[in-house]
Design a protein around this nucleic acid. Structure first.
Lengths: 187, 187, 187, 187
DNA sequence: TATGAATGAGGCTTCATTCAT
DNA sequence: GATGAATGAAGCCTCATTCAT
């Protein structure tokens, strides 16, 4: 792993554990096993560091979901697949998930970066738009739907991370997806 | 308004705008129109200040909801009332809402305070528990249900704060409550 | 002496001895016998500190010269008086003199401050202007004359500070003033 | 131009614009179009770099003046020639001139280098010494005379660099040299 | 000779908190 | 209770310099 990656990994862990402002850059370099200056050789500022972490996670998420969005035709099947992938990704990358949860809406991520990464999810957004027009989803603004879906995922993820065994429980999964789907679906 | 209240009001505004760590106590005193030392007469530390603000907001929320929880008998009616009250409170107290949203889950609120304020919502929690047992709500753990409800409210609030006029739209409200209700309801 | 003055005095000494950039603020506070923070309580930045020192010296110089400029009528007498006062001030305030010499033209003094202090010497500038128009001084631009006079004073001061005893030598003083005067005078 | 020369040229420009301490070696390498390490192949330290620049300028000045000092016999003619050469050199090499002005007396130039370059002007110094003994110049210490002459040149140069067109004005030149000459001459 | 990633000491400044008035 | 000057620990970042390639 390159020193740059060591820094990003260490920072990710410390940020979610202590928060951005409570994590000195000195602690990051130390945890990464590099010198103070090295951090600033790779990232101009502490803000650029967190921005870069955010960007990388968002893009890796997008890349993971891409096949599911492209492959299927039946709407509910797509949503089910995406839903599964998201929650499994959370269970496998709890730190990255927590990072998005904690910093995704904070002012620490620059507007610029946020915009650039938002585009990455336009495919999914279009899907929702179509579902609304087709009458499959409730007649609500797309933004509301997107918000409701992601907040549902957040709540589910939070719970699952503390009860990982439940993910093996087929009935639990069925009920949880049912809740997810009926939050928006008309039938 | 007492100096103590001036400080709390100023702090609330600055905290949600800049974040806790990016808000110097000096800025709070200045915005409140008091001297640096005065803040520390009323609150031993900066943490005690944010804790106190949190507590006050939480309790005011509880007091507001109490009559609705006590009065009615029909479940869906209670949930509708509570849902309405919560969103109207958000629209009338956007700063307080944002404060809860930003700091409610952060490590800045002491475990102690969080516990004490949690109890305040045990009535509502019991209601949900009964709904599950009665089969009105999906057979999911109570904690999951509570999480899904509050995250639904968060998403709705966020959207409404940027589109206040929609609250007057009866159809929108109906659809949004429908979404809220069917997130958990079995029918 | 107030802590503020202690800081200014200590800074003056260190700045001329080591230069601005080679003088850590920590060294200033230490020499002044105050805490690090105290320096920044009185001066927002290190630059504001040097600016303030510059301003104070310039204004004290102006105040010292004011009577000489106001009192006399005969031109050469005024110039002689001012010349004497300047050199005696230098001998009595060698640190302040060196400060002006070293930082007067440096980029460390803000344009703003430089302007504000320049006005302080407009009286003397007018005197020179009149002398040129009257034919007492060579027909050169005022700015050139001012520059030549002050550079003459600088050279003289530098030498005198290393040979203080010569100031008591009447013949030396006569010759040096002669040089000063004939740099600009036509006769 | 060799990389070594590129570095020296870039450094000269940046030093006079921003000052020595405000010019990172990284900025120099960048402006010179070379890598960080390259600078330190040619100059052991940043100080050695500025020292070398100083030395080169001083020696080029000496070489330029040498013929004028050697050729003539009449004193005033020599001084006039030297005076002309100095100011024309300034007009043609404003950056080098500013460099000498800014760093010539600063502590950045090592005592060693300063001594070595001083010797270069001993010829001129002797000339002044003779003029004093001959009664052509005022009976002042040689050092004072040297100081007055060079400060006169500084003041003149500073002005000329901002009013280059005046150098074509014969009357202006006559008056300015008159001032220069009568600063020291007895008649 | 040339490169540029890596180093780590050190500088400026911020800020929660104290305390004498 | 109220004030605000004073404190000093700690944070972010800069930068001259080294060294493996």
């Amino acid at each position: 792993m390159s020193k740059r990656d060591q820094i990003m990994t260490a920072a990710l862990g410390l940020f979610i554990e202590n928060g951005f402002d409570k994590t000195p850059t000195s602690a990051i370099s130390k945890a990464a096993g590099v010198a103070t200056g090295t951090l600033f050789h790779h990232f101009k500022t502490k803000e650029e560091l967190i921005d870069t972490i955010y960007e990388e996670i968002k893009f890796s998420l997008r890349d993971m979901l891409a096949p599911a969005l492209a492959g299927q035709t039946e709407l509910k099947a797509i949503f089910h697949d995406v839903w599964i992938m998201m929650l499994e990704w959370t269970l496998e990358n709890p730190e990255k998930y927590r990072f998005l949860h904690q910093f995704g809406e904070s002012a620490l991520i620059s507007a610029n970066t946020r915009e650039r990464t938002q585009e990455a999810f336009s495919d999914f957004c279009n899907l929702v738009e179509n579902a609304i027009e087709a009458g499959t989803f409730r007649p609500l603004p797309v933004d509301v739907c997107m918000g409701l879906m992601s907040s549902h995922l957040y709540a589910s993820s939070n719970y699952l991370l503390e009860h990982k065994e439940l993910w093996q429980d087929a009935e639990f999964r069925k009920q949880l997806f049912g809740s997810y789907w009926h939050t928006l679906a008309t039938a």
